[in-house]
Amino acid sequence: MKFIETALSQLVVQFGGNICSFSGLPSQSNPSLRGIQTLEKGTAEHLGFLANPKYKEQLLTTRIGVVMVKADQFEGLSAWLSDQGRDPTSAPLAWLLPDPYLAYAKIQQWWLAQSEFKPAPGIHPTAVVDPLANIDPSASVGPNVVIGAHAVIANGVRLDAGVVIGRDVQVGTRTRIYPNVTVYDECVIGSNCILHAGCVIGADGFGFAPEQGHWVKIPQVGRVVIADDVEVGANTTIDRGALDDTVIGFGVKLDNQIMIAHNVQVGERTAMAGCVGVAGSTRIGARCTVGGAAMILGHLNIPDGTHISAATTVMSSIKEAGAYTGIFPMEEHKNWERTAVSLKQLVKLRGELRDLQKK
């Protein structure tokens, strides 16, 4: 993406910190910058960051103009560069900040907001909008968008091409919905949310009652309620509740291709990586993290502050917060086969051990 040209001094005024030279001399330079790049690929017109000192060797060869570093690491980095023989006059300027990685996130957000294309408010002529829908004049409704009756689209909302908003849906202020997202009837999307392309909010939960070898569908009449500041990744699906609502709490971050089943509740500021599956009626607490491809069975409780490692299967409720892992480390296949055979014998071996203990 092409970012607008911005003077370093303008960024410092906006985000704080101090500019220093690795030579130890005061710097009067005020370069114009055109975005953030890696230390490996950046040029003199780029801003970079060094969040982890183990990558400091990249400072020896980088051509980047300015690098964000932790303020309390600058002196050590400067001395190390000198020991390694890098000419300090050719080194990048150092922007001293308490947390370069956090600064990177905030600066990139600002730069993107200043640089990205913003469609004019209004409704595209190809959009199909029910006359009973309520759309704020400041909202942007893109090509081929469909909006149902009594839907409420708040100020500053952006609906990209092909979005479908059902009847009685509410979309909060400044929420961005990317192309081909579908929000089913009556669902609620909060303010400052991001819904990435292809995600589906409010499809029927998987509910069926058995009858003589057949399945009888249970109507899913709850909603999906998404709080403010939530991000939902591409092709992620969140099912509506059977009776009660499926609820996604404030500040939750969901990666791509996640499946959230009916009546699940996810606590505020919880984050889940790609391909996680959560079965119905499970309650996940606040500030939890769930690694990619983890599977959480239904009707479970996960307490606040719990971390679940990637590919872990959670089959019972967790009583105390902590870090939980349930995966086998990878090994050569023939060794894995031996391990699997041994595992199958554990119950038998346990019985034999008990017999020995009795004797």
Rank of each mutant, 00 (worst) to 15 (best):
A7Q: 07
Q10P: 08
S21R: 08
S29R: 10
K41C: 10
G42K: 14
T43F: 03
E45H: 09
L47G: 10
F49T: 13
F49N: 14
P53A: 15
E57V: 12
Q58C: 04
L59I: 08
G65T: 02
V69N: 04
A71Q: 11
A71P: 02
G76I: 01
P88L: 09
T89Q: 13
A91P: 02
L93I: 03
A94T: 05
L97C: 07
D99Q: 08
K106Y: 04
Q108R: 07
Q109L: 11
S115N: 09
F117S: 11
A120F: 01
H124R: 00
H124M: 00
V128Y: 01
V129C: 03
V129E: 02
D130W: 00
A133S: 01
N134K: 04
D136S: 07
P137N: 00
G142H: 01
G148T: 01
H150V: 02
L159Y: 06
G172V: 11
T173H: 15
R174S: 14
Y178H: 15
N180I: 05
T182W: 06
C187I: 04
V188Q: 09
S191E: 14
N192A: 01
L195D: 04
V200L: 12
G202R: 05
A203V: 08
F206W: 07
F206G: 14
A209Y: 07
Q212S: 13
W215L: 13
V216I: 13
Q220M: 13
A227N: 15
A227P: 12
A234T: 13
N235M: 14
N235W: 14
R240C: 12
G241R: 13
D244L: 15
D245T: 11
L254Q: 10
L254W: 13
I260H: 09
H262N: 11
H262T: 13
H262M: 06
Q265V: 09
V266N: 07
G267K: 06
T270G: 03
T270A: 05
V276H: 08
V278T: 03
A279K: 10
R283E: 14
V290C: 09
G291I: 05
G292Y: 04
G292N: 08
A293V: 06
M295F: 08
H299A: 08
L300H: 07
N301I: 14
I302Y: 05
H307G: 01
A310Q: 03
A310D: 02
T312W: 01
M315N: 03
M315C: 00
K319Y: 00
E320Q: 05
A323K: 01
G326E: 00
I327D: 01
N335P: 04
T339S: 15
A340H: 06
S342H: 13
K344P: 15
Q345C: 03
V347P: 14
R350T: 10
G351H: 15
R354Y: 08
D355E: 15
L356M: 13
K359L: 10
K359H: 11
